[in-house]
């Protein structure tokens, strides 16, 4: 029963990893851009929600809305003002610029909030759980987290395949040179993609704050989890990313069940195993 429990906890955790991964996957999908500071942006989201709700005492709903609005706008502006200038065939400039951002964010957070770890207390949300069987309970918070992941991915899927914005994002991803001939503005489209990705980053940050302890240096590990979920799931497949997140989450909780010290290592090893067996991921996009 403990193993079943581990698997279920892992699936829930996988939801969080899918949230981490969705933004990274979206940015890569649209502009072949990998943001090294992705995890740090998630951590910024976590600090923002704690600041708004705990330090400023804002109503949680207002706090959440403010975080999402703030990170989405910041993401748009960051892409428009800065990142668009380093996009191109050369992969080094974006890696370096976002590496620089990562260092700046981590040390900025350290300066502002100290190295103490934080967590957003959620009271009854955290303590309520559904007892399915003996030794098998599903917490309300993890369940909500998983549902959020499902919702976010369904939303992204809808935006991508059912809206004019999604159409433009896909077209720009296919052939950015030709899109301006159809009246598309790549700088704006890329910034919208990052804005949308940042919105998801904000959601991920809020859940990070509720789910675990975090500190200014928590970003890189989140980047790696996000990356692993994307690669395990297969590039360009957003539902695959969810499955990738779940596989990573389950590998970690099973690892933790074996020995608390190998939780993270077990996740990395699962990723490397997939890389050995199927470097294109388990569920790569099939052209329809």
């Amino acid at each position: 029963m403990v193993w079943i429990n581990s698997v279920i906890q892992g699936v829930m955790l996988g939801g969080l990893y899918a949230l981490f991964a969705a933004g990274l996957s979206l940015m890569f999908g649209v502009m072949r851009f990998v943001n090294i500071a992705h995890g740090d942006f998630i951590v910024v989201g976590a600090y923002l929600i704690v600041t708004f709700i705990v330090s400023w005492g804002l109503h949680p709903a207002i706090g959440v809305a403010m975080v999402l609005l703030l990170v989405a706008c910041a993401g748009y502006l960051n892409q428009r003002v800065l990142l668009n200038r380093v996009l191109g065939k050369d992969i080094l400039p974006p890696i370096l610029v976002t590496f620089g951002m990562s260092i700046i964010i981590q040390n900025g957070l350290l300066e502002l909030y100290s190295a103490d770890s934080q967590k957003l207390q959620t009271g009854w949300l955290e303590t309520t759980s559904l007892q399915v069987a003996d030794k098998l309970a599903i917490g309300l918070l993890p369940a909500l987290m998983f549902l959020t992941a499902l919702g976010v991915i369904a939303m992204l899927q809808f935006i991508f395949y059912r809206t004019p914005l999604g159409r433009m994002l896909r077209a720009t991803s296919d052939d950015p040179e030709i899109v301006p001939l159809m009246g598309g503005r790549n700088a704006h489209t890329f910034a919208l993609a990052t804005g949308l990705a940042s919105l998801v980053v904000g959601i991920a940050g809020i859940w990070l704050a509720m789910k675990t302890n975090f500190d200014p240096a928590a970003g890189p590990a989140r980047l790696l989890f996000a990356f692993e979920a994307v690669i395990i799931g297969g590039l360009g497949n957003i539902w695959g990313t969810l499955l990738g997140g779940i596989i990573l989450g389950v590998a970690q909780t099973i690892g933790a069940q074996i020995d608390a010290g190998v939780q993270i290592l077990a996740g990395h090893l699962a990723f490397l195993l997939v890389l050995v067996i199927r470097p294109t991921g388990l569920f790569p996009k099939v052209s329809h």
Binding site: R32, V34, I231, H268, L269
Partner: peptide
């Protein structure tokens, strides 16, 4: 051999994951 299964920017992050595996492995 493992890292070269990834390309470009994904190679970059892949090498980072592998370094983490060594760090966590050595800690064991």
């Amino acid at each position: 051999w493992l890292a070269f299964r990834l390309n470009g920017a994904y190679f970059a992050i892949g090498t980072w994951v592998i370094a983490e595996v060594y760090r966590l492995g050595v800690a064991q």
